[in-house]
Computed example of a mutant assay.
Amino acid sequence: MSTWQLQEAKSRFSELVEQALSNGPQWVTRRGEEAVVVLAAADYRLLQQGPSLVKVLTNAPRGEPLVLQRSVEPVRDLYL
């Protein structure tokens, strides 16, 4: 990922967009701090397709016992 200062990104916006389309996401900094990322619309859509890991984990059941059923068959011998 390339990094652009905000002033540079504003003055060379077309080039910034071309770089995002051809080389992937581009960081833009403001006052030396990371501010935003410019990425292609197709890359953004891929990120939006499924639920995020954060959403999955925050919606996971809590405090409920985990019910596992094990087979009552004896364990088979393993020969190496």
Rank of each mutant, 00 (worst) to 15 (best):
residue 4 W to F: 10
residue 6 L to Q: 02
residue 7 Q to L: 11
residue 8 E to W: 08
residue 9 A to N: 01
residue 9 A to S: 04
residue 9 A to V: 02
residue 10 K to S: 12
residue 10 K to H: 15
residue 12 R to Y: 08
residue 14 S to F: 01
residue 15 E to L: 09
residue 15 E to G: 01
residue 16 L to M: 05
residue 16 L to F: 05
residue 18 E to S: 09
residue 21 L to E: 01
residue 21 L to G: 08
residue 22 S to I: 04
residue 23 N to W: 01
residue 24 G to M: 04
residue 24 G to I: 03
residue 25 P to M: 04
residue 26 Q to C: 05
residue 26 Q to P: 08
residue 26 Q to T: 01
residue 26 Q to W: 07
residue 27 W to V: 14
residue 27 W to L: 12
residue 29 T to E: 13
residue 30 R to Q: 13
residue 30 R to G: 04
residue 31 R to C: 10
residue 31 R to L: 13
residue 32 G to Y: 01
residue 32 G to L: 02
residue 33 E to P: 09
residue 34 E to L: 14
residue 34 E to Y: 12
residue 35 A to N: 11
residue 39 L to N: 04
residue 39 L to Y: 00
residue 40 A to S: 11
residue 40 A to H: 11
residue 42 A to D: 14
residue 44 Y to N: 12
residue 46 L to K: 11
residue 47 L to Q: 12
residue 48 Q to R: 14
residue 50 G to M: 14
residue 50 G to E: 13
residue 51 P to Y: 08
residue 52 S to T: 14
residue 53 L to W: 06
residue 53 L to K: 08
residue 53 L to P: 00
residue 54 V to D: 14
residue 55 K to G: 13
residue 55 K to E: 13
residue 56 V to N: 06
residue 57 L to G: 04
residue 57 L to E: 09
residue 57 L to T: 06
residue 58 T to V: 04
residue 58 T to I: 09
residue 59 N to A: 07
residue 60 A to L: 04
residue 61 P to V: 04
residue 62 R to Q: 03
residue 62 R to A: 03
residue 62 R to L: 10
residue 63 G to S: 05
residue 64 E to K: 11
residue 64 E to L: 03
residue 66 L to A: 06
residue 67 V to D: 02
residue 68 L to A: 08
residue 68 L to G: 09
residue 69 Q to H: 10
residue 70 R to M: 02
residue 71 S to Q: 06
residue 72 V to E: 11
residue 75 V to I: 12
residue 75 V to M: 14
residue 75 V to E: 15
residue 76 R to V: 15
residue 77 D to A: 11
residue 78 L to W: 08
residue 78 L to T: 12
residue 80 L to M: 05
residue 80 L to R: 12
residue 80 L to E: 05
